[in-house]
Simulated scan of single mutants.
Amino acid sequence: MRILPIASGKGGVGKSLIAANLSVAFAQAGKRVILADLDLGASNLHLIIGCRSPQTGIGTFLSDTRSDFSRVIMDTDIPNLRFIPGDAEIPGSANLKQNQITALAKRLLSVDADILVIDLGAGSHQSILDFFLLSGRGIVVSTPTVTATLNAYLFLKNTVFRLMYSSFSRGSPAHIYLEGLRKEGTALQKLYIPKLLEHISRIDPESHGKFLKRMQYFHPRLILNMLDEPKQAEVALKIRRSCSEYLGLDLEHLGVIYRDSLQDIALASHLPILLYKNEAILSQAIYRIADKILQSEEDEVFLEGRSIEESFQEAELEAEVDFEARMGYVEDLLHCGALSMGDLVETVKSQQLEINQLRKENLFLKSKLTKAITQGFKI
């Protein structure tokens, strides 16, 4: 079974929409798919795939981890797709204890499916990192905004630290060293990983070797969502360079997805965009990404046939092609009268407001980074 955790450093980047629609694409390809809503505390994935309000969910199982897990797996109206609802209303469901994480992970790994898609919550809580690490080929979703790309990088950095921490046996010199830093009040996430690993290799070569071995199987993938123009696709290169230089991590690029107003209509209709309009630009991007995933090798084996460099070059080309198709689609709507000039003007005004807000956000973050650099802080 392939395991596909989908995460993001922050909310509002379209992670759940991508998880739902990828699941539909896999199901349409004849795969037996289970989609699990692990965005605990904000579970609404059932609305996206058009399911009735679930009576049971993850919270039901967590209240009694010895119960039959199959009772929280429900059928959907989409052939080949089953669904595990989350629970947004059960107190504490977003902050799981370690025994709950272990019990839930064990049940998820034993479900009968070809592909398990896991929609994770936003942020870097320990439970989210642990579920993301159920596979070495998880997906991180970002948008071109400064905050989203920074949070995507920080999510991956936190994941590397989690992988590091879990690689060191309790009582080993490396584990004692990390615990010492933590007790001193040092935020591990602020440490420079290459320098930290260099020190660990000297004090505990065995633990260092274990971590490097596990890193060989950790190759996360990126999807850049909500693009407005091809130039924004270049943001992915910045995330890649940061991961390579500061984390020693190879990041594969699965592709880009343009912003599409049809998504809002599909969501209001409680339908995945693939079912609402499968020829939409957004739908075609989802199908393309799904094909790449299905054509890749098994979960824990790193892609060798298609290099990392090629994946980024391919994504840039797709950004150009989709942008041309998107512009042609707008022209068709104008010519046939489905979209008035007034609608187009309002859309441009709305996007201009968003751009101005992003500029303010960018200036604010730049000032914070400048201040941090002057104080000798290094992300």
Rank of each mutant, 00 (worst) to 15 (best):
7 A>M: 11
10 K>I: 13
12 G>S: 09
13 V>Q: 03
20 A>H: 07
22 L>M: 09
32 R>G: 12
32 R>N: 04
36 A>W: 07
37 D>F: 01
38 L>D: 06
39 D>L: 06
41 G>R: 12
41 G>N: 12
45 L>Y: 12
45 L>G: 05
46 H>Y: 11
46 H>P: 07
50 G>W: 08
51 C>K: 05
51 C>A: 13
55 Q>W: 07
57 G>M: 08
60 T>V: 15
60 T>W: 05
61 F>W: 14
64 D>T: 06
66 R>Y: 09
67 S>G: 07
68 D>H: 05
68 D>V: 00
70 S>M: 07
71 R>T: 14
73 I>P: 03
79 P>R: 07
80 N>T: 07
84 I>E: 05
85 P>V: 01
99 N>R: 03
99 N>M: 13
99 N>G: 00
101 I>Y: 04
104 L>E: 03
105 A>Q: 08
106 K>I: 06
109 L>D: 04
110 S>E: 14
118 I>Q: 00
119 D>H: 13
122 A>H: 04
123 G>T: 11
126 Q>T: 08
127 S>D: 09
129 L>Y: 11
129 L>P: 03
130 D>V: 04
133 L>G: 11
134 L>E: 03
134 L>Q: 12
138 G>E: 02
140 V>H: 10
140 V>C: 06
142 S>Q: 09
144 P>W: 04
148 A>Y: 15
152 A>V: 01
157 K>I: 02
158 N>I: 09
159 T>N: 14
161 F>S: 13
162 R>Q: 02
169 S>D: 13
171 G>A: 01
171 G>M: 15
173 P>Q: 08
173 P>V: 01
180 G>V: 05
184 E>K: 14
184 E>W: 05
186 T>V: 10
187 A>K: 10
188 L>I: 15
190 K>G: 13
190 K>S: 05
198 E>H: 11
201 S>N: 02
201 S>H: 02
202 R>K: 11
203 I>F: 04
212 L>T: 11
213 K>D: 01
215 M>K: 12
216 Q>G: 15
217 Y>W: 08
223 I>T: 06
225 N>V: 02
227 L>A: 08
228 D>R: 02
231 K>V: 02
232 Q>C: 05
235 V>G: 07
236 A>L: 15
239 I>L: 13
255 G>C: 12
256 V>C: 10
265 I>V: 15
266 A>K: 07
266 A>W: 14
267 L>C: 13
268 A>L: 10
268 A>E: 11
269 S>M: 10
270 H>A: 06
272 P>W: 09
272 P>I: 02
277 K>L: 07
282 L>W: 14
283 S>G: 10
284 Q>W: 00
292 K>F: 09
295 Q>A: 01
296 S>E: 04
297 E>T: 10
299 D>Q: 14
304 E>M: 03
318 E>W: 08
321 V>N: 06
322 D>Q: 15
324 E>F: 01
331 E>M: 14
342 G>Q: 03
344 L>T: 07
345 V>P: 13
345 V>M: 04
347 T>L: 13
352 Q>A: 02
352 Q>V: 01
352 Q>N: 12
354 E>A: 06
354 E>G: 08
355 I>Q: 06
356 N>E: 05
357 Q>K: 12
359 R>H: 06
361 E>H: 09
361 E>P: 01
363 L>F: 03
364 F>E: 03
364 F>P: 00
366 K>C: 11
366 K>D: 04
375 Q>R: 14
376 G>A: 03
377 F>I: 01
